[in-house]
Design a protein around this nucleic acid. Sequence first.
DNA 1: TACTCCTGTCATCGA
DNA 2: GTTCGATGACAGGAG
Length: 586
Amino acid sequence: MGWESRLTAASADIDLIDILWRQDIDLGAGREIFDYSHRLKEQDVDKELQDGAEQEDTWPGEGAEALAQNLLVDGETGESFPAQFPADISSITEAVPSEPPGLQNNLLSPLLTGTESPFDLEQQWQDLMSIMEMQAMEVNSSTSEILYNAPPGDPLSTNYSLAPNTPINQNVSLHQASLGGCSQDFSLFSPEVESLPVASGSTLLPLVPSNSTSLNSTFGSTNLAGLFFPPQLNGTANDTAGPELPDPLGGLLDEAMLDEISLMDLAIEEGFNPVQASQLEEEFDSDSGLSLDSSHSPSSLSSSEGSSSSSSSSSSSSSSSSSASSSASSSFSEEGAVGYSSDSETLDLEEAEGAVGYQPEYSKFCRMSYQDPSQLSCLPYLEHVGHNHTYNMAPSALDAADLPPPGALKKGSKEKQADFLDKQMSRDEHRARAMKIPFTNDKIINLPVEEFNELLSKYQLSEAQLSLIRDIRRRGKNKMAAQNCRKRKLDTILNLERDVEDLQRDKARLLREKVEFLRSLRQMKQKVQSLYQEVFGRLRDENGRPYSPSQYALQYAGDGSVLLIPRTLADQQARRQERKPKDRRK
DNA sequence: TACTCCTGTCATCGA
DNA sequence: GTTCGATGACAGGAG
């Protein structure tokens, strides 16, 4: 559902509008012809005025002009258009340092655990925002506790099963540690690490030469054991947060490798709800990025990126629109009754919306206002239609523009034609005619003040006539103003809907990025863990025996070297480094 | 018949 | 003070 059906519905709307409109024109029927009862009522109201009304037309004929130019004039509003139509229309969460341990799970849980069954996008969004904040504010914090808090299924937490609190020989120095041949496996590291001159014959730590600062700069003085051992192995509680690991292994990420891991894998491994994962995976496969939460979209728009715009004409409420703005929306707001030329506007509309399937809005807008010829311009195949925003077409114009249906002409009585024309006129036109106003309502309404006053001065008009003329002018102006106001309002709504669409797109994109980051982080963890095991497993004491992971841990020193230290010492350092950021915050 | 949508109109406000 | 545009509110017609 969604796109195709909406497009189909929209095109159906437009087709229907087209058909109705053509019928309307073919029949020569203006809107008033369908408003006969209304006209009768008004005629009753104005009966006394009409008693003396003249029947002959003294009104200038705009419709006749249009006819002379091979144009048809819409009887509804005097819209001129060519007689021929076109032929066819056819977590980093975790990566984010220094998350308090309690928060870790909160951040991770939405994506990495199955505890939250509904895929609450709002929650995801908030999670993401908090992540971003954390990234910005707490770069220096530790990430190692992430590993401490790894879920039970996390391979990181299952690699060591040594009992905690194992006695530690603190007398063991790094110099006693020997390193078995492991250089070939360092290819797993980033180039920085690969460059480490670790000779297979080297027997002493530091594993990393002191002049190498790459690891130092990335890992800092890090207790690697804290990264890879679950808390119980560290012999400490969850507060044994290790020092910072500010995304040190970004270079380790392999794009191709990332692509190999699907979100379904993520779901399986991390307890990620498979349904949610599949949803996100669909998003990955979808260019539109709208599959997410699209059902909540008020208009299900699919305008191109940055199609949101603020109405240039007015709508302050739309000023909150996103920055990228097109002229499409403003064209809506300004076309129509105010008499703007809308050719370029329509082109803008096509450029901005047509190419990306703007049909829903399209049809909605057209459905609402198709009776207004000025708005027919929103139909691409009608953009050549001339726009005559004449208010209250003069009877003569109506003569030419809205010829009665052929059947009516065949009946041929002048009376019927007169009746027909009579019905075409608006209330004010009737009144003006009844009061023998010597100029058209069009002039009354659209002339500038000076010309209008000049016009009035040319004629000897009674007080009643002057009053009526002023009323006609006021009503006509207000009618157009109301039309413009409604268009603006609609335009504002459309802009807001577009903004919502854009924000939903952004949200979906950020969620995708979040999942990507989490995936990358997990892979980095796995890589670092395997490397740690590799290195640690090859270390030998002076007797050639391996070190116990429960008693010793690897730690990065401040100078970039890697040290083998007793685990208790490592835990103490970790606790100390954990307190520092807290103190800093105070 | 009730409801919604559209349109015209009036009243009012601010520029 | 007048004019004008914008807009909320209302009424009435149409579907």
